[in-house]
């Protein structure tokens, strides 16, 4: 009986599978062309000495793992990895705390939520180049408003982006300033979905604000918190534009991230083979960091 049913259902089932495959095909093609193809070639070039200009006369040669060993042995690359990890941890922690605090604050407002939402989002809406150049002007040792204010208060002034003691901190500060609104936006949306009944129950039970936060709010938005942390981690790990515009990786490599290192030592001298090896290492590191969330999301 069951065999007969299967035999009857099979043509329909096959048809629906074929329909599913047809529907997926355009997406698969786009993914293959736009993601898999470049990734494959990056991987392929990472095993060669491919240089864009030299390639015009002699083809790239296979050098196995030489690019990888050169990278791992290079003290400046190791420093760049350490800088990137340090930057990611600091930026993500501060962005999460500040963004969450902003979301709680706006969520608790009885009036003016819309205005606050727009005002707090503004830094995130600005292009990174504009943000970097604005901060460069504000922190300029000559005409920057920050040093002028410090001077008027008889406080010490700094050459913020050229001083080894301040450059890294300034980059973290600017990134936190620009990206905290992103965390705010996601967490604010998540806060809207927390059932009011749970807050009422907590209030009836006599829970204070601290307990309500840890036993009602956070458990309800923990998935959003994890997603935010993941997205910010990936984004912070790939930091390039701010570093390139503001410090170029200096002073003394103190702000060089992996991407900036690859730009200085690989891409700007058109050594794409070397650059590709670095890109693969970076991808693996980001995948490793993301794996916890992906594993959790896939159940």
């Amino acid at each position: 009986m069951r065999d007969h049913q299967t035999a009857v259902l099979r043509p329909g089932h096959m048809q629906s599978r074929r329909f599913g495959i047809k529907m997926l095909t355009p997406t698969m093609v786009v993914l293959l062309v736009m993601t898999a193809y470049p990734l494959f070639f990056t991987l392929y070039y990472s095993f060669t000495d491919y240089n864009l200009l030299k390639q015009l006369h002699k083809p790239a040669t296979f050098i196995a793992l030489e690019n990888y060993t050169d990278l791992v042995k290079n003290e400046y690359f190791r420093q760049a990895v350490w800088n990137t990890v340090r930057f990611t941890v600091l930026a993500v922690v501060f962005e999460m705390i500040i963004g969450f605090a902003m979301a709680l604050l706006v969520h608790s407002l009885k009036r003016g939520q819309k205005v606050m939402r727009i005002l707090l989002l503004l830094p995130y809406l600005l292009p990174t180049v504009t943000v970097a150049l604005s901060w460069r002007m504000m922190l300029s040792p000559n005409y920057g408003i920050v040093n002028q204010v410090l001077q008027s208060l008889h406080l010490p002034v700094y050459n913020w982006f050229s001083d080894i003691k301040t450059a890294f901190g300034m980059l973290v500060l600017i990134d936190v300033w620009q990206s905290s609104p992103f965390v705010f936006l996601l967490l604010y949306a998540a806060l809207q979905s927390v059932p009011q009944s749970q807050y009422e129950a907590a209030r009836i039970d006599g829970a204070n604000a601290f307990k309500t936060l840890f036993y009602v709010t956070i458990p309800n938005i923990k998935n959003s918190l994890a997603l935010c942390a993941l997205l910010r981690t990936i984004d912070s790990f790939r930091l390039f534009d701010k570093v390139n515009l503001l410090t170029g990786g200096g002073p003394a490599n103190s702000t060089a991230t992996i991407t900036q290192y690859l730009y200085n030592f690989g891409i700007s001298s058109l050594n794409f083979g070397f650059g590709s090896a670095g890109a693969i290492i970076m991808t693996v590191l980001v995948l490793f960091l993301s794996s916890f969330y992906i594993k959790r999301a896939m159940g």
């Binding site: 200096g250 002073p251 490599n253 200085n264 700007s268």
Partner: peptide, 19 residues
């Protein structure tokens, strides 16, 4: 030259900053 000045500039930067 591009690789040359990148290497030299990096070491000079280290000297200037006391590394």
């Amino acid at each position: 030259w591009t690789e040359f000045y990148t290497i030299l500039g990096t070491e000079m930067d280290n000297i200037i900053n006391g590394i």
